[in-house]
């Protein structure tokens, strides 16, 4: 018997792929745009359209953006009750729209807000959800979404499916997939929806305050740079981080750190790279004193060229490198600084 609290689902009623497009302060989250690119690829295998879902108030200026990035249409609700983001109200809105349109797949960017929203949507639809997928594919026969995620510490990849329920929901961290090109000549349909069944707010938003963590480097965020120098536990303190920050500056790159380094307070948490931090895909990753814990590797695996310096020849990081140097990171960093300064003079 099926749990009586699950509604009846006829899988054939469900068609199309949705991307929940998150926006805040008039800006669409990059992670949502990246999912539109992936959704298009999956949609072509299933022969369906991609719809972007947008909620809020005064959305007009943003509505065409998902289409410029490849969505076929935008389904949106402009509603006073959505002027402020309350998690359960936004989640209930997505549920109401999903019950009406019956998409077979809904994708969420696993931002902090996305990770909050998606499981409520999935659960209220009595369907499955997979968090932080690192790869997505579809089986054209069963139309099942193959949701791949690292699990149990990351040594194992699990392929998760939701064979009997629809829609199938998944979240993906920002920067796991590349951002598709923006093309203002693209056309698409805008569909306005009125929401009827929103729950009571039961709460009020009181306000917000930006907290800028102390960040002495003055360098760009780790997701925004083509070259990222990463400090690991082996750098042994703020002095080491400072040396690597100088190196990052000379390379026109930026500085990041492993969890150990940000936990120790040698760098702000916004510079943490890995499973519980940021995901990066720069042209060049340089790990210094980084041991290569799998949780860190998940945040940098997609880098084009990976370089590591570590004094331990058996450090796991060397399994992931294009170029590795077995040696003292400090000596190598100092030598690199010298060489780069000479190059600049020439």
């Amino acid at each position: 018997m099926v749990c009586p609290e699950w509604n009846q689902v006829n899988k054939n009623d469900y068609r199309g792929i949705w991307v929940y497009v998150e926006h805040f302060n008039g800006k669409i989250s990059e992670g949502s745009l990246q999912l539109i690119g992936k959704a298009k690829e999956l949609a072509s295998k299933l022969g369906v359209d991609v719809a972007a879902i947008m909620l809020g108030k005064d959305l007009d200026k943003l509505l065409m953006e998902p289409i410029y990035y490849g969505a076929d249409k935008v389904i949106y609700a402009n509603d006073d009750r959505l002027s402020i983001y309350l998690p359960h109200i936004y989640a209930a809105s997505v549920v109401e729209l999903a019950n009406k349109y019956k998409p077979e797949i809904i994708l969420f960017a696993a931002t902090k807000r996305g990770r909050e929203l998606a499981p409520y949507v999935a659960n209220t639809l009595r369907s499955g959800i997979t968090a932080d997928c690192t790869a997505l594919d579809v089986d054209p026969k069963t139309r099942d979404l193959d949701q791949v995620r690292p699990t149990y510490g990351g040594n194992i990849l699990a392929h998760i499916r939701t064979p009997t329920r629809r829609p199938q929901l998944a979240s993906v961290r920002p920067n796991v997939f590349p951002t598709p090109p923006r093309d203002e000549s693209k056309k698409g349909e805008l569909v306005e929806e009125k929401l009827s069944k929103l729950p009571e707010p039961r709460g009020r938003y009181l306000g917000s305050k930006s907290i800028t963590e102390e960040d002495e480097s003055g360098l760009p965020p780790v997701e925004k740079s083509d070259i990222v120098v990463v400090a690991g536990k082996g750098v042994n303190g703020v002095e080491g981080v400072k040396l690597l920050t100088d190196l990052a500056k000379l390379l026109n790159g930026t500085i990041g750190g492993t969890k150990k380094v940000t936990d120790a307070g040698w760098l702000p948490t916004s510079r943490q790279i890995g499973q519980t931090g940021r995901t990066i895909r720069p042209a060049l990753y340089i790990g210094m004193g980084v041991s290569g814990a799998i949780q860190h590797v998940f945040g940098m695996n997609e880098s084009k060229i990976i370089v590591a310096v570590n004094s331990d020849p058996n450090a796991p990081i060397f399994n992931y490198v294009d170029y590795g140097i077995v040696g003292d990171y400090k000596q190598v960093a100092e030598a690199l600084l010298e060489l780069l300064r000479e190059r600049k003079k020439q």
Partner: peptide
Amino acid sequence: PTIVAKIEDAKPLPRKKQIFQGDP
């Protein structure tokens, strides 16, 4: 509602893996 359809070892992407040992 979800099943783990398959598990596999996480394999590192193919990399050049050129390693230098010696003078820094």
